[in-house]
Design a protein around this nucleic acid. Structure first.
Length: 805
RNA sequence: GCGAGUGUGGCGGAAUGGUAGACGCACGGGACUUAAAAUCCCGAGGAUGAAAGUCCGUGAGGGUUCGACUCCCUCCACUCGCACCA
């Protein structure tokens, strides 16, 4: 009889839907917990091939752990606020609520069609009020604990579309919608104090099990660097001290080489010392010019150095009292360090280029050829070059000098060691409709007033006008019923905050909600959070992984510190799945229109085939070039598995197969743990080949085999199991293997002569060196004979022997 | 520019320092068939040879080792991330 995948897969999916065998049980009395998380779906359309790649290994792990006796939490949900719904609303006039409702329904149905064993009763959606109630609640906690503040800041704005854009929507300084130039607009922005969590985030990165690749990207993002902050006194043209400027440097060893100081154009000292600056008009002009350039522009393109001297001012280098001129330059970023830097053209390439443009002299303080380019830190530290022109430090190696100069500066009281982070506070404001409203009211008398937590959620009002106004204010600002309200404190007329939270808000705590998704008293019950604990294995794509995981760490740390969650670490392990590539090696995506839908593959070949085929093509973390080529290898494999029911003979495990079976059990267990599905599949194929050669499989063997294969191909194995055994495969236990049946009695032993393979000879297992040599002399004199002088024998039991003649 | 990762047949890819190329596709040969499809069996890294075999071979070049895809050094290519971060 043939294997009718359509009927069988539908049968089991329906059954799982009704019987709900994958429900996670809170506080299970006997089973230990295991939490498998797949990143929730971005609600934008249909599931794509990337989802097949990402979800199936997680599903296989969850199913495997259930067989092992774990109480598994494997939930799913939708990340629904943000652009896709909003774009659909603006372009097609669809209500975002409807868009999300339909999208959620679709991806849940499709998940079931992929045979994914989620606990669908825990499904959450970030744009539903009973979820974002708690996103708003968390924001209020940030505010209450002084971790949220409002400040003027710059946002991306498209003058053409008259809308504010996120960084992702304005990449390369171009508007994602119309392609026009994006400008920076200053406005009041909510920030979360993420920067002060830098070291704690580095701790999370240290503790999590994640590829070095991803860890490094995150450390990079945080950008920790150790250096010194040094104060320089500022003087006017009459040699009167008029102020002080602090600079940050990681190269204190070059302090004797300073020939100028640079401030960011926005630096506050310009305003303060205005009266002493002789060319103030020129300075103001330069400031204006650089302000026109967007933050993005300044950061991403290495440009010709521009700047402007502050005439009438100079500073003294505190180490040697030399007079140093002061410049403004836009290669100095206001947001990093102190917004001011000491410039040493001989030992910093940027300073070198600036000095060339402005004709500033250079002083070399470390050995090397500084004539054409700066000799930079990496080079001179590596070589440990000697110091030059540096008073008492001249002649000593730079590594030693670095320490001593730092000590001297600290002793003199002009500077101290500091640590800087390039990560900034999180700008937490968007001027869009489709996001969480801030539970904040502005009152003329009381100022910024948070809503009473009991009144949450503050529901996002309905509208038909999804575009921001001409000032870039959020569409909420046009809804008078929403904006005008009473101050919760004094009861007088007040206005609501009309900005909304960024897309990332809802995804920064969602794994916690799964532990208790219907709770209306807390974001999740503390005891349930304690029971489910950290996510044991978190899988998903790598696209926004750096930021998402850092945001997740940040929120979890904060919630831990205020006593809401029981641990600092949201995830024990994070796996990032590779991309799906098309046949030209490009990333498969909707936008490049080269996508093949997993639903199409399922329609043609069935879910089990689709699951196996894609994962046979490559490892979880590797990029996988999609192709239909080779899919027949999988279909015929499953046909052969199906045909096993016809050759069942005898009970228990046969002597003929027990070694193969035990090896298979060991291998599949280990590989599932590592999400290595491709090597699992090949082991299954090898096993089936052996069974077919022998022409029979016992009941015991088939039973174990089906359980092992079930995590990868759940439908066909469930069906065969029911047909042969009359019971449910999900009630089975994961089979154990016995160490003593992992090794064959007879082995093939490779014999090397002088390190080169000569022959592979059959021998009994655990043969000793002496026995082996006698065997060789006796039966294989052509390999090596008794009379020959042998220099050395390297004997690795059961592995190899290498004879050196 | 900086950082991380990757580099193995015609293709996708396997290999705790111990038989490189498992498993699969494509390919060649055979069986079944009037024929084809499907299915089943066999073969196969390259060079050379009638064959047994011999030599070469995991991006390139060195090194450590009895033995290196695997460890170390130098270089090249590709991918990803960051990028005027002082």
């Amino acid at each position: 009889m043939n294997y009718d995948f359509r009927a069988i897969e539908k049968k089991w999916q329906k059954r799982w839907d009704i019987e709900k065998p994958f429900k996670a049980i809170d506080f299970h009395p006997t089973k230990p917990k295991y939490y498998v998380l797949y990143e929730f779906y971005n609600i934008s359309g249909n599931l794509h091939m990337g989802h097949l790649k990402g979800t199936v290994p997680a599903d296989a792990l969850a199913r495997y752990k259930r067989f092992q006796g774990y109480n598994v939490l494997f939930p799913i949900g939708g990340d629904a606020f943000g652009l896709p719904a909003e774009n659909a609303a603006i372009k097609k006039g669809i209500n975002p609520h409807d868009f999300v409702r339909d999208g959620m329904k679709r991806v849940i149905e499709q998940s079931k069609a992929l045979g994914l064993s989620f606990d669908y009763d825990r499904t959450i959606c970030t744009s539903s009020p009973d979820y974002y109630k708690w996103t708003q609640w968390i924001f209020l906690q940030f505010l209450k604990h002084g971790k949220a503040y409002k400040k003027r800041g710059f946002v991306n704005f498209c003058p053409n579309c008259q809308t504010v854009l996120s960084n992702e929507d304005s990449q390369g300084g171009k508007c994602d919608r119309c392609g026009g130039e994006v400008v920076q607009k200053e406005r009041l922005v909510w920030y979360l104090k993420m920067k002060e969590y830098s070291d704690r985030l580095l701790g999370n990165i240290e503790r999590i099990n994640m590829s070095e690749n991803l860890k490094e990207a995150q450390r990079n993002w945080i950008g920790k660097s150790e250096g010194m902050q040094v104060a320089f006194d500022i003087f006017n043209s009459n040699n009167q001290k008029v102020g002080q400027v602090e600079i940050f440097t990681t190269c204190i060893e070059t302090i004797y080489g300073i020939t100028f100081l640079v401030l960011a154009p926005e630096h506050e000292l310009v305003e303060k010392l205005k009266e002493h600056i002789k060319n103030i008009d020129e300075v103001e002009k330069y400031k204006e010019k650089t302000a026109l350039r967007s933050e993005f522009d300044r950061k991403s393109n290495v440009k010709e150095k521009t700047g402007c001297k502050l005439e009438g001012l100079y500073v003294l280098n505190p180490i040697n009292n030399s007079k140093v001129p002061l410049y403004l330059a836009d290669f100095i970023l206001a947001g990093y360090g102190t917004g001011a830097a000491m410039a040493v053209p001989s030992h910093d390439q940027r300073d070198f280029e600036f000095a060339e443009v402005f004709g500033i002299p250079k002083i070399q303080v470390i050995e090397g050829d500084c004539s054409k380019m700066a000799v930079e830190k990496k080079e001179y530290i590596e070589k440990n070059s000697k110091m030059l022109n540096s008073a008492e430090f001249t002649g000593i190696p730079v590594r030693e000098a670095k320490k001593k100069i730092a000590e001297k500066i600290e002793k003199m009281g002009i500077g101290k060691k500091v640590i800087n982070y390039s990560m900034a506070d999180w700008s937490f404001t968007r001027q869009r409709y489709w996001g969480e409203p801030f539970p904040i009211v502005f009152c003329e008398h009381c100022g910024v007033v948070p809503l009473d937590e009991k009144t949450l959620p503050l529901v996002l009002p309905e509208t038909k006008d999804y575009l921001p106004n001409e000032n870039g204010d959020s569409p909420l600002s046009k809804i008078a019923d929403f904006v005008n309200c009473k101050c919760p404190k004094c009861g007088r007329n007040a206005r609501r905050e009309t900005d909304t939270m960024p897309n990332w808000a809802g995804s920064s705590w969602y794994w916690l909600r799964y532990c208790d998704p219907h709770n209306d008293k807390a974001l999740a019950d503390f005891e349930k959070l304690k029971y489910w604990g950290s996510v044991d294995c978190y899988t998903g794509g790598t696209e926004h992984i750096t930021r998402h995981v850092l945001y997740a760490f940040f929120w979890q740390n904060f919630l831990y510190e205020i006593g809401v969650v029981p641990t600092r670490d949201p995830f024990k392990r994070k796996m990032g799945s590779g991309l799906i590539l098309d046949d030209t090696g490009k990333k498969m995506s909707k936008s490049s229109a080269n996508g093949v839908s997993p639903l199409e593959v399922i329609e043609k070949y069935g879910t089990d085939v689709a699951r196996l085929h894609l994962h046979f093509l490559g490892g979880y973390e590797d990029n996988t070039p999609w192709t239909y080529d080779g899919i027949t290898g999988i279909t015929s494999f499953l046909d052969r598995v199906w045909a096993l029911q016809d050759i069942v003979k005898g009970d228990g495990v046969s002597v003929e197969h027990r070694i193969e079976l035990n090896k298979l059990i060991k291998k599949i267990g280990e590989n599932l743990e590592d999400l290595k599905l491709n090597t699992c599949i090949s082991s299954f194929m090898i096993f089936v080949k052996k069974i077919r050669e022998d022409g029979f499989i016992t009941k015991g063997e088939l039973r174990a085999f089906l359980v092992l294969l079930n995590p990868l191909a759940p439908h066909i194995t469930s069906e065969i199991f029911e047909r042969v055994f009359g019971t449910q495969i999900l009630d089975e236990k994961w089979p154990d293997y016995d160490e003593k049946y992992l090794l064959e009695d007879n082995i093939n032993l490779p014999i090397q002569i002088n390190g080169k393979l000569k022959q592979v000879i059959p021998a009994k297992r655990d043969i000793s060196q002496e026995e082996l040599m006698n065997l060789l002399f006796d039966k294989y004199p052509e390999i090596c004979s008794k009379d020959e002088p042998l220099k050395k024998i390297i004997f690795v039991p059961n592995k190899i022997v290498n004879i050196i003649k």
